[in-house]
């Protein structure tokens, strides 16, 4: 130990840091760019899911304006954009989670494998079994790990016997990369796991019903970098079986995991392009401003 400690610097008055705070998007010069339709390549051949002229209203307020977008088979599409831009709302359009929000109205055509998911014939229960969802905050049920994963299969009667259910649970946990860590504790409560493990449990729970599409709404925003890396690796593996749409605030994450990136801005879809292009050579001025960190 040193004998003399350096003296503490005097507590000088700190400078007003208001200049460094980003202004709200609406009042910034960078935002003064006209959005006229979507630039880039929003459409793909043979899409898994597709939306045309999607408009979403919360009561009188319109949250999404004329979004046209395809989601290709077995791809990971990242949706980025500043807060309140409608990316999460759009994600929830795709499995009709907005149905549960009072006063929410969705228009336009939305298809899954060419079937209209908003037609009166479409059962939202079946749709949600085919289009699973992982939420921002890990939300395991306050039940055992086993019961968490088995909930979906039990709900839909996917397993005829206990052994079959055991297999589904084990397989789902394995695919979610959690099985090794919890295989001896399946009867312990899911809420006792760490945040990253809980989120992987939620992913296991979502894939236990064998969906075709998995929607992820900022799945790693509540997690530390190591848990985030685990989940990102996991998404890369899941891509071979499932189509994944992920909403994220982290542009690095979008760049790491996705093949295509869609940039939303104030309820409008500004640009959709292959991820490499979006992050190296964005077509739209707004996208460029966002990814270069000038706002958002």
């Amino acid at each position: 130990m040193s004998d003399v400690l350096p003296t503490l610097p005097g507590l000088s008055a700190t400078g007003d840091n208001a200049d460094t705070q980003p202004l709200p998007v609406e009042t910034r010069d960078e935002f003064d760019v006209e959005i006229s339709g979507t630039v880039g390549k929003p459409f793909v051949d043979n899409p898994k899911m597709a939306s045309r002229n999607c408009n979403v209203y919360y009561g009188d307020k319109q949250a999404i304006f004329d979004v046209n977008l395809d989601i290709g088979k077995n791809e990971i599409i990242a949706m980025i954009g500043p807060s309140g831009c409608g990316k999460s709302t759009y994600l929830r359009v795709l499995n009709r989670m907005n149905d549960t929000i009072p006063g929410c109205r969705v228009s336009g055509e939305h298809t899954l494998d060419g079937e209209d998911i908003y037609s009166p014939d479409q059962d939202p229960v079946l749709l949600r079994a085919r289009v699973g969802m992982v939420f921002q905050k890990p939300n395991p049920f306050p039940k055992s790990i086993y019961d968490n994963v088995a909930y979906g299969p039990r709900l839909h009667g996917l397993a005829r016997s206990r052994t079959e259910l055991d297999e589904i649970v084990e397989k789902s946990l394995m695919r979610a990369g959690l099985f090794k860590e919890v295989k001896d504790d399946l009867q312990k409560p899911g809420t006792g796991l760490s945040g990253g493990q809980q989120q992987r449990l939620c992913i296991a729970r979502a894939i236990a019903v064998d969906p075709e599409v998995i929607l992820m709404d900022e799945p790693t925003s509540a997690l530390d970098p190591i848990a985030t890396a685990t989940i990102e690796e996991l998404m890369d593996e899941l891509k071979s079986r499932y189509t994944i749409a992920i909403v994220t605030h982290s542009m690095q994450q979008a760049a790491r995991v996705s093949q295509r990136t869609a940039y939303f801005h104030l309820g409008k879809l500004v640009e959709v392009n292959p991820t490499d292009q979006v992050f190296t050579n964005p077509e739209h001025k707004l996208t460029e401003n966002y990814i270069t960190g000038r706002f958002g």
Partner: peptide
């Protein structure tokens, strides 16, 4: 009862009544 639990159940394809009886009421 936290809405996240209800959302999780609905996201898995539970109906509103199932969500009520499986999660909301027990909690």
């Amino acid at each position: 009862v936290p809405p996240s639990i209800k959302e999780a159940a609905i996201g898995l394809g539970a109906s509103r009544v199932q969500t009520l009886f499986h999660h909301t009421l027990p909690l």
